[in-house]
Simulated scan of single mutants.
Amino acid sequence: MKFKFESLIIWQKAMDLGEEILLLSKSFPDLEKFNLSSQILRAGDSIALNISEGSILQSAPEFKKFMGYSIRSLAEVITCLHKAKRRNYITDKEFDIHYSFCFNLMNMMIAFRNKIK
């Protein structure tokens, strides 16, 4: 037995992204502990959290609203990745890998939201 959202590929990928962001943020300097590290972790976790929360709602408009929150959280993660790259906390390769994953997930999430009826 499992919840409906656990079968969603976007939720599964969002869960994976949250764990990857956790590992990545561990390489940030201590001075970012309450700033960029905290922000990227909260935004990364918020993606899957909002997908699951929205999926249990009875109305399509409400689910779409929560998908919007998830998409905006993913945009936050992307911006944090840019900040981390500019501050030389992550390599170009790390940035490219995570950026590509986020780009693909963003497209999947937007397509999914557009199909909610």
Rank of each mutant, 00 (worst) to 15 (best):
A43S: 13
I47F: 09
F112P: 00
N107Q: 03
M106K: 09
K33E: 11
K117H: 08
A48T: 01
K65T: 04
G18M: 13
I40Q: 10
F34W: 02
F5A: 06
G44T: 03
P61C: 05
G44C: 06
I110A: 02
K93A: 01
L31I: 04
H82D: 02
M106W: 08
A111C: 00
I116M: 11
Q39I: 01
A48V: 12
N50A: 04
Y99I: 05
F34R: 09
A43K: 11
S38P: 15
E6S: 02
E62A: 11
A60C: 14
I21H: 01
K83W: 08
E6P: 01
P29H: 10
N114L: 03
S25L: 15
A60P: 08
M106H: 06
E94M: 07
M109P: 06
K83C: 15
K2A: 03
F112S: 00
N50S: 14
K64G: 10
N35W: 00
I10Q: 01
S25P: 06
N114Y: 07
L22N: 04
K115S: 08
I51R: 12
S59I: 06
V77P: 14
D30H: 07
E19M: 12
E32W: 15
F66D: 11
K83T: 13
Q58R: 03
F63W: 07
G54A: 14
M15H: 08
R113S: 04
I90G: 01
R72D: 10
W11P: 00
K2D: 08
F3L: 14
E20Q: 07
A111D: 09
